[in-house]
């Protein structure tokens, strides 16, 4: 039985299908803000789902992650480096009065794409366990963490 893709997975597939590279060149950096859930317990999962999708978009394996924030207070940010030199800054915040929304700024070496959406209630996958572990390690140590054997 096919697994229904999550909102972020669907968005990733749609962008890939839209031929992004023909418009902005080779993707090199990503800045994304996610307010997709009111549950602060799911924020780390949002980052752990978005980070490997970014890596797939960059066609590059991960290198390391540096994370900041406080889950209980509803905000986390991950600064992610990929082996090919690409970078991403991903911020997940708990929705409060706002409806779920996201803003993506994808930078290519010849242009940029900005995408904003208010998708309503979305399904979240919980993220890649290796990424979850690396983000958690960085949050707890206050230092960058290597991302090992990520999907």
């Amino acid at each position: 039985m096919p697994i229904t893709p999550t909102y972020l997975e669907s968005l990733h597939r749609a962008m890939a299908a839209a031929g992004i590279e023909r418009r902005i060149g080779t993707p090199v950096a990503l800045r994304a803000y996610f307010q997709l859930t009111a549950d602060h317990g799911l924020l780390l999962g949002v980052l752990a789902e978005a980070a490997p999708l970014a890596g797939r978009g960059f066609s590059s394996p991960p290198l390391r992650v540096y994370a900041q924030g406080a889950e209980r207070d509803g905000y986390l940010t991950a600064l992610v480096e990929f082996a090919g030199g690409q970078t991403a800054v991903l911020t997940a915040e708990a929705c409060r009065t706002e409806e779920p929304q996201l803003l993506i700024l994808l930078i290519g070496n010849q242009g940029a794409l900005q995408y904003q959406d208010t998708p309503g209630r979305v399904a979240l996958a919980g993220g890649d366990p290796v990424w979850r572990a690396a983000i958690r390690e960085s949050l707890e140590s206050g230092r960058p963490a290597m991302v090992k054997h990520a999907a």
């Binding site: 924030g69 509803g74 600064l79 800054v89 915040e93 409060r96 706002e98 930078i107 010849q110 940029a112």
Partner: peptide, 30 residues
């Protein structure tokens, strides 16, 4: 906590002078 992204990204990459976003997250709103 704070983050900054900064760079020169090329003519035609923006309809203004370049992306310029400021996100504030407080304990009562953002």
């Amino acid at each position: 906590t704070a983050t900054i992204t900064a760079g020169r990204i090329g003519w035609m990459s923006h309809f203004g002078s370049g992306p310029n976003l400021t996100r504030l997250y407080g304990d009562k709103g953002s």
